[in-house]
Every structure is written in C-alpha cells, then in structure tokens.
C-alpha cells in the first residue's frame, strides 16, 4: 500500500494541477485568466511526461563514460525529455499568439470579460 502510494503520488499532484488549469478555463470569465489556465494545463501535461521518465538510481541522460558497456538502467528515459523540450518552446509561441488575439479583441470590444463580450457582440450584430 505504502509502496503504491510512493510510486503514484507524483501523478496525483500533476492531476490536481491539470484540474486547476481546467478550472481556470471553465469557471473564470476573464479571457486572460482562461489563457493562464491553458498554460497551467500545458505545464501539468509536461510535468506528467517528465515524471513518467524517471528510473530509480539513474542519472541524467548525458553519457558519463563511453568506454564501458552502456547500462540502459543507469540513465533516465531521454525520449520524454526531448518531446517536452520542444513542447515548452512551442507553448510559449502559441501563448504569444493567444495574447495577440486577446489584444485585438480588447481593441475592438474594449472588454475581456466573457459575458460582457458576448453581449457586445450580439449588440453589434443587431445594429
């Protein structure tokens, strides 16, 4: 039981972080807060991949000594690190795009509140 807990508690923290991000996206009405929730969601997924790449008593995936026979158990899994490395930078770029869209929305409707925004959009359609 305690071993099961020690093997899984990191996943549960990541899942809580995931739900916090989803909370920001669903419950909050401010669009900037929604984007922040999106970023938290993304970070949670990145942390999940990094957490799943661990091996006990293993070190970073940089080869220490290439003359000996390479033990696969001595290095943690390099594949999730590679995938998440690119995901982080792409995440920064896409959040830049979302902030650009928010700036455009604010310039046109002068608000970032979701309900207010929908109201103003329907008013504009009615005109």
């Amino acid at each position: 039981m305690i071993e099961f807990f020690l093997g899984h508690y990191a996943y549960w923290f990541v899942l809580i972080l995931l739900v916090i991000g989803l909370y920001g996206m669903i419950i909050k009405h401010n669009l900037v807060k929604k984007v922040i929730g999106l970023s938290i969601f993304q970070v949670a997924i990145i942390l999940f991949f990094i957490a799943s790449s661990t091996k006990w008593e293993a070190t970073v995936p940089v080869l220490a000594n290439h003359h000996e026979k390479i033990q696969a158990a001595a290095y943690i899994n390099p594949l999730p690190h590679t995938l998440m490395l690119t995901a982080i930078v792409v995440g920064v770029a896409t959040s830049g795009v979302s902030f650009a869209l928010l700036i455009l929305t604010y310039r046109r409707y002068k608000t970032l509140n979701e309900t207010e925004l929908l109201k103003r959009m329907s008013e504009e359609d009615a005109e």
Partner: peptide
C-alpha cells in the same frame, strides 16, 4: 474529471519501475 483521472492513474506503472 479529477475522479476519472485518478482512477486512470491507478493503472499506471509506478514511477521509476524498470
């Protein structure tokens, strides 16, 4: 959603398992 995720995580292999 959280309950579903935690239920799914029970099927994962523990961290660091060779």
């Amino acid at each position: 959603f959280l309950a579903l995720l935690i239920y799914a995580s029970l099927g994962l292999s523990p961290r660091g398992d060779l």
